[in-house]
Write a protein that binds this DNA or RNA. Structure first.
Lengths: 415, 415
DNA sequence: GCCCATTTTTTCGAGCCTCGAAAAAAAGAA
DNA sequence: TTCTTTTTTTCGAGGCTCGAAAAAATGGGC
């Protein structure tokens, strides 16, 4: 707790809570919302009528699942799709995609641009982002947020991209640049964190307060949910799982250091080993998915260098997860991305390595779930992150109860 | 946010906030509290008079620092030491200490018992704890909490000790046993977490939302503060920093696994290496502090096996911190315990190893602080943890606004 | 077809709580 | 002794949530 609760703040929070309940439940009735939030029917009634009047929520009619029970039928409520739109950008190797989403979370439009991220200049990358937003948000004057997801390290404040394997340039301020161009708040976030956010929305039973999302692809990424919130460190987006040191002074990594997990488990590392190259050979830039599939097939078929390559990859991942679990405790793991195509080969050895670590005490109990395609998760996570920030920061506080807080400097109390 | 805010809850939280402000500020005036909490003077006046009437707070007079300014002098407020007492137990190798603390956090009484933790039975350990509490809390019928700190792994709920190097028995339910004996809530927590809690109280400027406390001693422990709260995993107390794998299939660790950080950096590991024993030799139980000091002196004096032993220890710690930082981002580090006596030898090599890791990108900027004696921190952290739980759970809610909430099953809304 | 039972939603007054303004209290300064 | 300054209390206003009761909307039974 930081600061006292005033009267108007109670309303703001309860409003936001109602919005959040509707977003999560889909099309709940007022009674349902009362149950979900623990607030009284009268309060829900009052807040709902405010929200409807303000164009944030609307009545949907009888809802889909009309159980035809006795009594007055429930009126389903839903968020008003016209309340706002948000734009989600996703920058990855040679690709920039943009999605426009309405306030309900439905996709309005989507575009994908090819571009040569490795060779483009710093300003050209920013310009590409700006014109992608301009193109997709054109004609939608109600768009209120931009969520920018990028493969790489971002700062904790969500302002800029600090480093990325897809470009030689570092410290690119996508946040300020896009804000200057469009005048709406922008968050810059690591793509794996967005995957974690999406998992929580899609399957809150399994992915609730503590879980891990690992992206296996060219490189290795991670998103970490701790205590129910996305973990972002003090400076950067953290979660550089792929660059934990697996073997001191080991194989050469794309990042220039030696012995990183990625230097054993990234596509390029598996490819390098399978082709009998030295572990100190400079990683090659891009390997086609088909080529990796062929390697996996070969490893399944016969023993040899290729199988050994996958084996080393699995060992690195297993020890990495074990070390992670030693720190933060076993938790559900989602493995996402092209690398999951070979997960049948990897899993037994990942578990074997895991079992040798402190975090693997209950290795057999650790549960993996795999998803081959990361892009839908990244888009979904970005959209939901942007929309919930609207819920809490814009539509919860509302106009009447507006940000009119004078609330003088008010220090902090930490307990 | 989980559930809506009702009217009485606003009061409860603001009451708790006032108590927290007083606990942190020491002897603030009402005006000071208003500034700290952001609440109005009238509210503070009302809440303060309630709390005073209930015997939770009291007026202290002019306070210590009377600046003799013009105007009506401030009246200093303080927590009433007679409001409650808490008992703090600390179980470590061959030692059980008990401290009784008043509601202000001042030590009333302290006792230390010698006992042979390695040979005592499960029930004997529980009995020792019970009689330690009985002895120290005797005559204080106002004691309301027991905080039990133990070297080892505890469960996330704070109910029991899952595993500890100080006893062969595992899963000892100190929580339920002590609760049954005394009828007051008990929390069982890892000693390093208590160190972290204490650091936050002692130096909130440096140790605020994200930091790491590492205990260097016989073994290696860690307490982790993330996003302003002590991190406790899903099952155990987590933070098994000492058992992250430094080198796969490396030196034999006390825990039975191989290659753990502790197997290089624990006292026994340094001793083993310095004496030319094999890295697979079974760790010996207890090494005197004097003996470690002698080894450190030898390492300072001349090159050789001993210096190499400290060097390997530093490397393990450095890579461990680096891997930790790769995951959770660089943060201030406090190193506590007997092992800090040799920190002058360790630090350069820790930094050198750190610099080779992803987390060490700004290795020179990582800041270490050392404290030789862990026990005062553990006691302080335990006491403050128990006292703040009283603040929020007992004295904040109060009697009038009591737990009389019916609040039906109320589901959860997660945003 | 009409009336009753049932469930949802709204209305209304009561009770709290916080707030701002003003008053009261308690000192030093002139 | 009076004025100034600062802290603390008092008091009425305004807002919010709550519970109870009323209103609304529908199915079931006769």
């Amino acid at each position: 707790m930081t600061t006292g609760i005033r009267h108007d703040e109670m309303r703001k929070r309860n409003r936001a809570l109602v919005i959040a309940a509707v977003r999560r439940a889909g099309q709940p009735s007022r009674t349902e919302i009362a149950r979900l939030t623990g607030l009284s029917h009268s309060t829900i009634s009052a807040i709902a009528s405010d929200l409807i009047e303000e164009g944030i929520m609307r009545e949907i009619g009888q809802g889909e699942t009309a159980p035809a029970r006795r009594g007055r039928p429930q009126v389903a409520l839903g968020l008003d799709p016209k309340a706002a739109t948000v734009a989600c950008l996703h920058l990855s190797f040679n690709s920039l995609s943009a999605v426009l989403v309405d306030y309900c979370g439905r996709v309005i439009d989507t575009r994908t641009h090819r571009l040569s991220t490795l060779t483009l200049g710093r300003q050209a990358l920013v310009d590409a982002a700006v014109s992608a937003v301009r193109e997709i948000a054109c004609g939608h004057e109600d768009f209120l947020r931009i969520a920018f997801a990028v493969q790489g390290i971002t700062d904790a404040a969500g302002r800029q991209m600090l480093w990325s394997p897809i470009t030689p340039h570092s410290d690119i301020g996508f946040g300020p640049e896009l804000e200057a161009a469009f005048g709406v708040p922008v968050t810059v976030q690591n793509d794996c964190n967005m995957i974690a956010a999406a998992l929580r929305w899609r399957n809150p039973e399994r992915y609730r307060d503590n879980f891990v999302a690992i992206l296996l692809s060219q490189g290795i990424g991670m998103g970490l949910m701790l205590n129910g919130q996305l973990f972002t460190g003090t400076h950067s987006s953290a979660g550089e799982f792929g660059h934990m040191i697996h073997k001191p002074d080991g194989a050469l990594c794309r990042c220039g250091r030696r012995g990183c997990i990625e230097a054993y488990a990234g596509n390029y590392a598996i490819w390098r080993k399978a082709h009998g190259k030295s572990a100190m050979e400079k990683p090659i830039a891009d390997i086609k998915a088909g080529e990796m599939d062929a390697l996996a097939a070969l490893a399944r078929r016969e023993d040899g260098l290729t199988r050994q390559a996958f084996s080393e990859a699995a060992e690195a991942i297993g020890f990495g997860i074990g070390n992670l679990f030693a720190l933060i405790d076993p938790a559900p793991v989602a493995i996402v991305g092209q690398g999951t195509a070979a997960f049948d080969i990897l899993e037994p050895e990942i578990r074997a390595a895991l079992a040798q670590t402190a975090g693997g005490q209950h290795a057999e109990a650790v549960s993996f779930e795999t998803w081959p395609h990361e892009v839908p998760f990244i888009q979904h996570g970005s959209a939901m992150t942007a929309l919930t920030s609207l819920d809490w920061e814009v539509f919860g506080p509302g106009l009447r109860h507006g940000a009119g807080g004078r609330r003088p400097e008010s220090g902090r109390v930490v307990a």
